[in-house]
Structures are given as structure tokens and as C-alpha cells.
Amino acid sequence: MAKQIEGVYEKVYECAQKEFLAKGFQEASLRTIAQEAGTSTGSIYTRFHNKEGLFHAIVSPVVEEIKNWFIDVQESFHQKDADYQKQNMPEYSGMEAEEFVAYIYDHYDVFKLLLECSGGTEFSDFLNQLVEIEMKYTVKYMEATGDDAICKGNISPEFLHIVTSAYFSGIFEIVRHDMRREDGMLYAKQLREFYYAGFAKIYNW
């Protein structure tokens, strides 16, 4: 087996991320990536199998980490008793959202890839996956606290899904608009306050 040159795959990752950001997944060229990284397309195929395998290697660690964190945070809160959940939901949700936005900025280029360059990959529905997790635990919260907004017809599951999706889409505008970290953190805080007013009415906070 040929000995791998030290640092070559770090360079491949760097050049691949640059190429994907510039052209998107579908238009990105493995030949260009290989040339920029000083290696061959054959070596990239050997290590990553294909272009999607290379894209997966770049974004998957961040996707898995944020999804696992998100589920852990939700599950931890759901383990609390109903009174605690009802009294602390606004504050807990705010802290969770702030940490979420900080994580986005810590891995900004990967989220740029996910949101703007992932068409044609398994990650093209990344945003919807987060929405589905949030929806699952929102329903759990409503059941735990005896919230009957859906039963009474104050809201519908479809409305809840649309609002949740709109909120997450709004958060990710910080990436789409290339906001600086301090501006993005402020924007996200303002967005939370805007949505909080609506949810407070729905849930009678």
C-alpha cells in the first residue's frame, strides 16, 4: 500500500470546502480540488469513493454533533416535571437558542455549505430534520403540561410546523446574509423575542 503523504487530506478538505462554497455540490469539480490540493483524483476516489463522499466527510461531523446536542438538550428538559417545564420553558428555550447560534458561528463555513451548497446530497433536507426534532419535542411539551391548544383548535399541527420551520429558516438568515457574529447574535435574540410573543399567546405563558 502506498504511503499517504502527511497533510494531504487536510489540504483536500480545505480545497474541497473552497470549491463547494464557490460552485455548490453539483458544479464542484473533483479534478479542480485534486489540482489545488496537489494530489490526484484517484487518491480522492480511493479515500472518499466519490464527490458526495468527500462532501459527507466535511459536513457530517458537524451535522451529527448539532443534531445529537439538540436532541440531548430537548430530552433533558423533557425529563423535568410538568410544572418545571411550564415555568422554565421561555428561559430554557432562550439559552438553548443562544448556544445554537454560537455553534453556527463556530462552524460557519460548514453551515454555509449545508444551507447553500448541499443540493443533490443527502444533506439537502438538513433544515427540515431540525424542524422535525423541534416538532417532536414541542408535542411532548404540550402533552406533559396539559396544553390543549391543538385540541381546542387554537392552532393546528400544520400551523405549528409552518411556524417552527419559519423560525429555523429565520435563524439561518444569519448565514445567508453573511452577518458578523455580533450582529447575528443580536438578530437571533430579536427573532426569539418576536416569536416568543406569539408562542406566549398560544401556550398561555
Rank of each mutant, 00 (worst) to 15 (best):
M1D: 05
A2G: 06
Q4N: 04
Q4T: 13
Q4Y: 10
E6W: 14
V8D: 12
V8I: 07
Y9S: 01
Y9H: 02
E10Y: 13
E10G: 11
V12W: 08
V12F: 08
Y13G: 00
Y13K: 11
E14T: 09
Q17Y: 00
K18E: 15
A22R: 07
E27Q: 13
T32Y: 07
I33C: 06
E36Y: 15
G38I: 02
S40W: 09
T41F: 06
T41Y: 08
G42H: 04
G42W: 11
G42N: 05
T46D: 13
T46H: 08
K51E: 03
G53F: 09
F55G: 04
H56A: 07
A57F: 08
V59T: 06
P61G: 01
V62E: 08
E64P: 02
D72T: 10
D72N: 07
D72M: 13
V73L: 07
E75I: 01
E75V: 01
H78M: 15
H78Q: 05
Q79W: 01
Q79P: 05
K80M: 04
D83A: 13
D83Y: 05
Q85D: 04
K86E: 14
K86S: 14
Q87L: 05
N88T: 07
M89D: 06
P90Q: 06
G94V: 09
G94L: 12
E96N: 10
E96F: 15
E98P: 03
F100K: 00
F100T: 01
F100A: 10
V101R: 03
V101F: 00
V101M: 01
Y103H: 02
I104F: 03
I104H: 00
D106F: 00
H107Y: 03
H107L: 01
H107A: 01
V110R: 06
V110N: 10
F111C: 00
K112F: 05
L114W: 04
L115D: 11
G119Q: 08
T121N: 02
E122H: 05
S124C: 11
N128S: 12
N128F: 04
N128P: 14
Q129G: 10
L130F: 06
V131W: 04
E132R: 07
E132P: 00
Y137T: 05
T138S: 13
T138D: 14
T138Y: 06
M142L: 04
E143A: 11
A144Q: 07
A144G: 03
T145F: 01
I150Y: 02
C151M: 11
C151R: 15
K152L: 06
N154D: 11
S156L: 02
F159V: 10
H161E: 07
H161P: 07
H161K: 15
I162H: 04
G170C: 13
G170H: 03
G170M: 08
F172H: 02
E173F: 08
E173M: 14
V175I: 03
V175Y: 11
R176Y: 02
D178H: 02
D183Q: 14
L186T: 13
Y187L: 01
K189S: 04
K189V: 03
Q190M: 04
Q190Y: 06
L191V: 07
R192Y: 11
E193M: 12
E193V: 07
E193W: 09
E193C: 10
Y195V: 05
Y195C: 03
Y195K: 00
A197K: 15
A197G: 14
F199A: 10
F199S: 13
F199V: 12
K201N: 10
Y203C: 03
Y203A: 02
N204Y: 08
W205M: 08
W205L: 12
W205V: 13
W205F: 15
